[in-house]
Design a protein around this nucleic acid. Structure first.
Lengths: 223, 223
DNA sequence: TCAATTGTTTTTGTATACAATCGAATGGAT
DNA sequence: ATCCATTCGATTGTATACAAAAACAATTGA
């Protein structure tokens, strides 16, 4: 047994805790989320656990099959590609708007985030790059000045988190990602909305494709 | 008092029932959704009511302020415009994909839906047009062959339902909507993805603008 | 040996009971 | 009369109890 009872100090919600556990692979896709087990783990009753699971199911991370329980949603590769396609379009929309509306501070933040990415890439710390990358994209969402769009983008990014993380393991992907970021920053600073949009769109789409390759290569190894 | 106890025969879920009640204006924006009242109305305990409210809050229709209850989300005019902007982009993406990938049956369904719209418009029954219109857009979502995208589009359309309904009351809007539909169908049949995308995008955006006008005109009346 | 049916056990779904918090009302002081 | 504090009521959040359904196991029959 010997389970850690719960996450220590941070007063996050149950939903967030479960979200992280799923993203980090503690509960792998397809696995069953037993209510009483979770209740014991977090030292609460089943009620708040159920409520958290319902939230996650609406958010799409978990699938609740009536009368038989909650399962970590196992996203097929084709659906994953679909999700990256939508993500690409949302982000493209974000930069397009950002080009027109972003303030000087927001431009500065974008550049700063980009430089943080470069730094993190130098240090060969993939997790560091992951976080810097999140900051970079967040800067774009915020600069769109469309709060609803930003929320949608964040929500979807969150759902894809686990897969994006994996994706960075692909050979030379960090380097490529960085070059694409550079092109995006350049286009934004030039005010070339169309170019920025196109570069960002393919920056995201490429992730879906690379992930596809990644999975395919796993399949080859096995055979 | 004299409340109807619950919707009669249809075995919809609690969430759907509340969704409809909100869309139809039974619970206007900003109003409080008292758990015990709802529980009595639907003749269930608070537990399933709470779970439904949580679903609605994640879906964005309801806002849960901790320790003080659930409220029908009052969407400000500017946020509404933001939502229509995103909706426009999602639908544009749908037709773009649909142009490339739709089957003959799907084309036929789109045309059929369009004809149903014309019919409903002739009969001057705004609610009839509303439903025919939903069918038309659903045809486009489905034809995108991107299941995730279709889900997102449906979800957002659902959130905007109440406002789209109101919006059709604007003078000559049905006529204009119909003309736009015709242009979309034409472009799709020609296989002109770019044209279809642009027409559909402005078809949605116009709704946000018209809604804006609508609200503004209400303001004038009051003063 | 395998299939099917029945009985047991586990787990979800719902109701109810209890605890904690918020807000309104009341009362007192300036 | 107004403002602040305290108390009481109402309502949310959580725990527990109960009902119903599904998964599982065992036993019986072919």
């Amino acid at each position: 047994m010997m389970e850690l009872k719960t996450r220590p100090r941070t007063a996050q919600t149950l939903r967030e805790a479960l979200e992280d556990d799923i993203a980090v692979g503690r509960y792998p896709p397809g696995s069953r989320l037993d209510e009483v087990t979770l209740a014991k783990r977090f030292a609460v009753s089943r009620t708040p656990i159920r409520e958290a699971l319902i939230e996650l199911s609406v958010a799409g991370l978990v699938e609740i099959r009536p009368r038989r329980g909650a399962f970590v949603r196992d996203i097929g590769i084709s659906r994953l590609v679909e999700m990256f396609q939508v993500m690409a379009e949302l982000e493209a929309m974000c930069v397009r708007l950002a080009c027109r509306r972003m303030t000087a501070q927001e431009q500065a933040e974008l550049v700063a985030a980009h430089e943080a990415c470069i730094l993190a890439a130098d240090q060969q710390t993939p997790d560091g790059y992951f976080h810097a990358n999140e900051r970079f994209h967040e800067a774009i969402y915020a600069a769109s000045h469309n709060g609803f769009l930003a929320e949608q983008a964040r929500a979807l990014q969150n759902r894809l988190k686990a897969y994006r993380r994996l994706q960075l393991r692909v050979r030379n992907r960090v380097k490529g990602s960085l070059a694409e970021h550079q092109a995006i920053v350049d286009a934004v600073l030039e005010g070339d909305a169309e170019k920025a949009e196109n570069v960002l769109r393919s920056h995201i789409l490429i992730q879906g494709e690379r992930f596809n390759d990644f999975v395919a290569s796993l399949g080859e190894q096995r055979s």
